[in-house]
Write a protein that binds this DNA or RNA. Sequence first.
DNA 1: CATACTACCATGCATTGCAAGGTACTATTT
DNA 2: AAATAGTACCTTGCAATGCATGGTAGTATG
Lengths: 99, 99
Amino acid sequence: MRKGILEYCILSVLSDGDAYASDILDKLKGARMIVMEGTLYPLLTRQKNAGWLSYRWEESTQGPPRKYYSITEEGRRFLVDLDASWQELVDTVNKLRHC
Amino acid sequence: MRKGILEYCILSVLSDGDAYASDILDKLKGARMIVMEGTLYPLLTRQKNAGWLSYRWEESTQGPPRKYYSITEEGRRFLVDLDASWQELVDTVNKLRHC
DNA sequence: CATACTACCATGCATTGCAAGGTACTATTT
DNA sequence: AAATAGTACCTTGCAATGCATGGTAGTATG
């Protein structure tokens, strides 16, 4: 049911601050959206290739280095489009359901 | 973006009254959800095989006979589940977006 | 030095929606 | 009567997406 919406959620999370994969998974889990690692990593790579995200490496005191993702200006512009699409989808489904 | 949600929309439309493929496409179009024939037919077949829909043939005065789909009791029960899932999804996405 | 943990990533699969094309019956026009 | 257009059914092949699984490598911990 939630296919394709993950993309929107990831950009939303990152629009609120840079994060690495585990951060993102935690934030999603906090909102009760469970996502698998094997889903997230390829998605982040796709969004980076699309120009919506960039990343930098940061050393960690407890474990291997982390890949911090950051939303780009282009990503923010796309997020505005996604806001509109999402609202439209919600309106459409609700209209179809209640009549 | 709307992947997987079509299933919910089709059941919603049919919960409001029996319909054949073109009827359904028109109702979806009326709510600005554009769906292709090649998407709808397999989906109806899947839902019928899942036990959520049944169908009957009806002669038409203007063209070939029509396959009218009807939601089953099992389909209505499943639709209630989908209502909950949908509401949950909307809440989750909105929560992630606005904080 | 071995085990556990963290964080990265890749491969293969199932599902789903779309594009394109095909069949068959009915109605309309020439 | 034949050709064209319209309606309604359906299939096949493709691309995208999410999941399950498993793998690599660096960093602690016992």
